[in-house]
């Protein structure tokens, strides 16, 4: 029996569990346990196995290995030998003021990336959702920064921030901001800002496209009803549009947070974490510990800190989303 000829009950359940999901099927069959298509109760496990195997081999095992490494003294030059040191790696990184500065820099970088990219992305999405001549072309053009390879973006940004002939350096000087003779990327006060501008420039199209697609789901009848009731643009956005966008924005914000936490190539190529550690984020620190200092144990401990931060963000966002759903 196919999904379609099981009757309309299943197909009209939107926006609840999708028709194809297990919950949807169960509800659709009024709680009756459905036999598998092939008749064997093992069939779902068979189809799940490759994905599960992939997750175990390429995600779970390395993760467990990282957890174990973080409690050992292991060097890159002799990775087969590890000495158990307990929490010494964690104690040493947290005792180091430079690491605390790294955490702060990471926090600033991630927050700015999320706020900047989601804020600007929302603005661009709203603009692209309006009607204006050349809209299809604008929608295509806006994706270019996202499509550009990160390494190319970083190298072009370095060129644009060049202290002698960089166009952005000249622009800054023209508006009265003097980055100094050594330029923006070598100025501890401006380097992180330059990296943020570049990162946000690259992220905005992704956010804009995702939010633009979410905007298509805003019920026009609600918008029109609000207009009839005399609601202004801001009220319509707050009461109708924002309510529809909220789950997508939450998801995008989580994605941006995780991606920003692990962003490496842009920062490495633009400043290598300098000047004077002002752009040294967790990932840069991890790389430097693993491949320059060759201390895999310490690098793994830094990685664990990153994982814990990611988990806090994910769990926190889930809790917020659940609370919001309950409230609704």
């Amino acid at each position: 029996m196919t999904e379609r000829n099981r009757g309309p009950h299943v197909l009209v359940r939107s926006p609840g569990p999708a028709a194809g999901t297990v919950a949807g099927r169960r509800d659709g069959l009024n709680g009756r346990r459905r036999r598998s298509v092939t008749g064997s109760p093992w069939t779902p496990y068979f189809f799940l196995a490759p994905a599960a195997l992939y997750l175990v081999v390429f995600q779970l095992v390395p993760l467990l290995q990282e957890v174990w490494l973080s409690f050992t003294r292991t060097t890159l030059l002799n990775p087969t030998f590890s000495a158990w040191v307990g929490t010494a790696n964690f104690q040493s990184i947290f005792a180091n003021p430079a690491f605390r500065q790294t955490l702060l820099t990471t926090l600033v970088y991630v927050l700015a990336c999320v706020v900047g990219s989601v804020g600007l992305g929302l603005g661009v999405a709203l603009l692209l959702n309006g009607r204006f001549p050349g809209r299809p072309v604008a929608r295509s053009l806006v994706t270019i920064p996202w499509a550009a390879p990160g390494i190319a973006v970083a190298l072009i940004a370095v060129w644009m921030f060049n202290p002698q002939y960089g166009i952005l350096t000249r622009l800054l000087r023209a508006v009265g901001i003097d980055p100094g003779a050594s330029g923006v990327l070598d100025n501890p006060q401006l380097a992180l800002g330059a990296i943020l501008v570049t990162t946000i420039w690259q992220l905005v199209p992704f956010v804009a496209v995702v939010l633009l697609s979410a905007l298509q789901a805003v019920p026009q009848e609600l918008v029109e009803a609000a207009q009839v009731d005399g609601a202004g643009r801001w009220t319509i956005f707050r009461v109708v549009t924002w309510q529809v966008l909220k789950p997508t924005i939450g998801l995008v914000a989580v994605l941006m947070t995780i991606w920003s936490l692990r962003r490496f190539e842009l920062i490495w190529l633009m400043t290598r974490g300098g000047p004077i550690g002002s752009t040294r984020t967790l990932v840069i620190d991890l790389y430097a510990q693993a491949f320059e200092s060759k201390q895999l144990g310490t690098a793994a401990a830094i990685g664990m800190v990153g994982i814990v931060i990611s988990l806090i963000v994910i769990v926190g966002s889930q809790l917020v989303a659940r609370a919001a759903a309950k409230e609704a």
């Binding site: 050594s182 070598d186 100025n187 501890p188 300098g274 000047p275 004077i276 550690g277 430097a288 320059e292 200092s293 060759k294």
Partner: peptide
Amino acid sequence: TPDIRHVVVTEVLAALQGQ
């Protein structure tokens, strides 16, 4: 050497920056 290099270069550059 790579670790000492990192420490020294970071401090030298901080001096160049007038810090």
